[in-house]
Design a binder for these strands. Structure first.
Lengths: 341, 341
DNA sequence: CTGAAAGCGCTTACAG
DNA sequence: CTGAAAGCGCTTACAG
């Protein structure tokens, strides 16, 4: 680090000295609230420019109580849904002049949750947004004290104390399953992603749709979110002869399932139909192109910021987002006559 | 936001009062530097627990000069390489007790860069890490004053003033091209991703390898990083008859290229070989499984944090990371006898 | 070991 | 319009 010696960052007093005015005057120029004479304003601006001054947000936050950081607590940052939601949060935050501080909750045990929450709360936060996509998210949400403003992105409504940008997982599972049933499949198997403690909404929707149709409810297979684990699940599925349609917990898993089935010598959708969840950018380029429940994660992230900043309330509060819809592509089809019998 | 009334967060003085001690004593318990009598320590701990006290990092940063935020300036957060790098940064930061604040540089124009940099510098930063993967990154790096500690993740060495975790793009392009040439292809076409202002290192490596082998250097096709634009490029490539091998700027683009070629009626690798860059998690599940230059982005991110915290210096400083290596899978093969002639 | 005092860099009343 | 003063929540010498 010797390569780049750091100067002491200039502070307000340096600017004041360089401009020949008092400290409060510089502050006024910066905030623009009170009028400042033109000549002083000009001198101050020039001094700021020359010194490369940037106000110290810590000091500012200390006195105004104004916080310019939105904390995000999440179990992951790289998977499609997570990354897109974070992208939406960052966009909305930036346009509100806020920065996004991310803390990953690395595990669901008490220590990890407590450490992550403590780390986040150690910052001067305007509020925190929790991605309640998994257990880590749920635990983090529960561990947050009521001294911070909180909003969540969730698939299930809570107790109403915390505003949530909701995606209607349950409805999605129901719709996707009914679509597959409507194609003529006797039942639909489910390859599940980890839920946030309890069964995921999409799994519940899937189960209810089967029951409502009087279809048998096969035991769901579990994955760890990865395409690889979807692949492994598919290998098990391929050994059975009662499988004609599979609904996957997300698209990455669906990609793995398709590949696994293909490697086992089965054709998708001719032998088995596969549907996913999320509408991953690669879904339309997969072979076959993946039928999936599309969700607008970035919009969800933006809504959460809206809730946090108090710009969204009322009927949008905990109301399911209307952005969920089925995108039918080539990975689903009616069962083959033989299998459908 | 009325759903969840906020209490005023407890401050040190509240804890001191509750524990019946002075403010500095609480501070000492927290920091653990100076000895504090056991009974007072216990009372303080209890008060902290009961009140749910979290120290105000802004106030702490103000007096100690210790900053607990690493700012990350990046052009994107969702694409594989970016997201993985950020993941590595977050991991290393968290284990050092730091939080990661992300600011996306939305565009390369001066206003956008200045706004993003200003937003980031407005925080009490321990330092900033710039992802120099694109023009936005380069511009942001250039716009940073020398009052902040900076590290970058880059593919090209700089002037030595800023520590960079390097990935040797240039070598990667060279190696991948030579591998394809070694298979017997007369030349290799290139579908490029946007560089950071100048041609990307991988493109340079590709070009040099062709020249060194005396192979013709076809004009590269440009994309915007997306699989979709790779698909479009493939459609153009498919119309030519001199294409037998294609090196893509990244895997997402390669996925699109493969799909585009297939949709145009060509077989990969029988008619045309395709190789990518990065080793995206879906590369091994693609059909055909993608041959690609693997890069350990998370490690790059961790190194950048190491540089920033001054834990990494000397020979690792601006030294290419050794993690770049070719992973040969099924998307590449020798040219067909006819085409190779 | 522990408390009173000073100060980090800012902003906000308070006087002029 | 503008400066001197006080204070945000902490930590760090300084005295005891």
């Amino acid at each position: 680090m010797t390569a780049r010696p750091l100067k002491r960052p200039p502070v307000l007093a340096d600017v004041a000295r360089a401009a020949g005015v008092s400290v409060p005057t510089v502050s006024r120029v910066l905030s623009g609230v009170t009028r400042v004479s033109d000549d002083k304003r000009v001198q101050v601006m020039r001094a700021i420019e020359e010194l490369g001054y940037h106000p110290n947000a810590a000091a500012r936050a200390l006195v105004t109580g104004q916080r310019s950081i939105i904390g995000v607590l999440t179990g992951d940052t790289t998977r499609y849904g997570y990354a897109s939601t974070i992208q939406g949060i960052e966009e909305a935050a930036r346009s509100a002049g806020l920065v996004v501080a991310i803390t990953v909750v690395g595990a669901a045990d008490e220590d990890a949750v407590r450490a992550a929450v403590g780390l986040a709360l150690g910052q001067p936060l305007a509020g925190v947004i929790v991605l309640e996509f998994d257990i880590q998210g749920s635990r983090a949400l529960a561990a947050l004290p009521d001294t911070v403003a909180v909003a969540a992105v969730s698939s299930t409504a809570g107790n109403g104390r915390i505003p949530r940008a909701l995606f209607d997982d349950h409805q999605g599972g129901w719709d996707a399953t009914n679509y597959l049933l409507g194609l003529g499949h006797r039942t639909v198997h489910h390859v599940a992603v980890p839920g946030s403690g309890r069964p995921s909404g999409r799994m519940l929707g899937w189960r209810e749709a089967l029951k409502a149709a009087g279809a048998p409810v096969p035991r769901p297979l579990e994955t760890d979110w990865t395409a690889r684990s979807g692949y492994d699940a598919a290998l098990r599925l391929a050994k059975r002869d009662d499988v004609t349609a599979v609904l996957c917990g997300n698209d990455e898993v669906a990609f793995g399932v398709i590949k696994g089935l293909q490697d086992a010598g089965l054709r998708v959708p001719d032998d088995i139909s596969v549907a996913g969840f999320d509408d991953h950018p690669l879904a339309q380029l997969w072979t076959p192109a993946l039928t999936t429940m599309a969700q607008d994660f970035a919009e969800l992230g933006r809504s959460a910021v809206g809730f946090l900043l108090g710009r969204l309330t009322g009927d949008q509060f905990e109301a399911p987002s209307a952005n969920l819809h089925l995108v039918v592509r080539d990975s689903t089809a009616p069962p083959r006559p033989a299998a459908a019998s």
